[in-house]
Simulated assay, not measured.
Amino acid sequence: MHPLDFQASRTLGMNVYRYIPGTESAVTRHWPGLFQEWSQGPTPFTEYAVNNNNMEEMAVYLGLAWRLTAGLARYAIPTYYRDDAAEALGREPVLVDWEYEIEAEDPHTVLDNGFVPGRSTADGHTPKSWENANRAGLFELSAPRDLVRLLRAVLLDATAEISLFGVAPGADRQTDLVASLCDSARPSLPSVLRDEDVFVDLTIGSDVGYYDAITVASPTDLQLRIDALAIDYATRIEAYQNSLDDLSDMTAFLRAIRELAGITLDAA
Rank of each mutant, 00 (worst) to 15 (best):
Met1Val: 13
Met1Cys: 04
His2Lys: 02
Pro3Leu: 06
Leu4His: 06
Asp5Arg: 13
Phe6Met: 13
Gln7Ile: 14
Val16Phe: 01
Val16Ile: 14
Val16Cys: 12
Arg18Val: 11
Tyr19Ser: 07
Glu24Lys: 13
Ala26Gly: 11
Thr28Pro: 07
Trp31Pro: 03
Gly33Leu: 13
Ser39Ala: 15
Ser39His: 15
Ser39Trp: 14
Phe45Lys: 11
Thr46Cys: 09
Glu47Val: 07
Tyr48Leu: 11
Asn52Leu: 05
Asn53His: 11
Asn53Thr: 12
Glu56Gly: 02
Met58Val: 07
Val60His: 01
Leu62His: 02
Trp66Asn: 07
Trp66Gly: 10
Arg67Asp: 10
Leu68Met: 09
Leu68Glu: 12
Thr69Val: 14
Leu72Gln: 11
Ile77Tyr: 01
Asp83Phe: 14
Asp84Arg: 12
Ala88Met: 05
Ala88Lys: 09
Glu92Lys: 08
Pro93Arg: 06
Pro93Glu: 10
Asp97Ala: 10
Trp98Val: 03
Glu99Ile: 12
Tyr100Gln: 08
Ile102Leu: 10
Glu105Pro: 01
Pro107Ile: 05
Pro107Thr: 07
Thr109Val: 00
Val110Ala: 08
Asp112Trp: 02
Asp112Met: 04
Phe115Val: 03
Phe115Arg: 00
Gly118Lys: 06
Ala122Glu: 12
His125Arg: 14
Thr126His: 02
Pro127Lys: 03
Pro127Val: 09
Trp130Thr: 06
Glu131Cys: 05
Asn132Ser: 13
Asn132Phe: 09
Gly137Ile: 01
Leu138Pro: 01
Phe139Glu: 10
Leu141Phe: 03
Ser142Met: 11
Ser142Phe: 11
Ala143Lys: 11
Arg145Thr: 08
Leu150Ala: 04
Leu150Ile: 07
Leu151Pro: 00
Leu155Cys: 09
Leu155Val: 09
Leu156Val: 12
Leu156Glu: 12
Asp157Gly: 04
Ala158Arg: 13
Ala160Asn: 15
Ala160Cys: 13
Glu161Val: 10
Ser163Pro: 09
Leu164Glu: 12
Phe165Thr: 07
Phe165Asn: 12
Val167Asp: 09
Val167Trp: 08
Val167Ala: 10
Gln174Asp: 06
Leu177Cys: 04
Ser184His: 12
Pro187Gln: 00
Pro187Lys: 02
Leu189Val: 01
Leu189Asp: 00
Val192Gln: 05
Glu196Ile: 08
Asp197Arg: 03
Val198Leu: 06
Val200Asn: 02
Gly205Val: 01
Asp207Phe: 13
Val208Met: 04
Val208Pro: 01
Val208Tyr: 06
Gly209Ala: 05
Gly209Gln: 04
Asp212Leu: 08
Asp212Met: 05
Ala213Thr: 00
Ile214Ser: 07
Pro219Ser: 04
Gln223Pro: 10
Leu224Asp: 15
Ile226Tyr: 00
Asp227Lys: 11
Asp227Val: 05
Asp227Gln: 14
Asp227Cys: 10
Asp227His: 06
Asp227Tyr: 07
Asp227Ser: 08
Asp232Tyr: 04
Thr235Lys: 04
Glu238Phe: 03
Asn242Ala: 10
Ser243Gln: 14
Asp245Leu: 13
Asp245His: 13
Asp246Glu: 15
Met250Asp: 13
Ile257Leu: 04
Glu259Asn: 12
Leu260Gly: 05
Ala261Val: 01
Gly262Ile: 08
Ile263Thr: 02
Thr264Ser: 07
Ala267Leu: 08
Ala268Trp: 09
Ala268His: 14
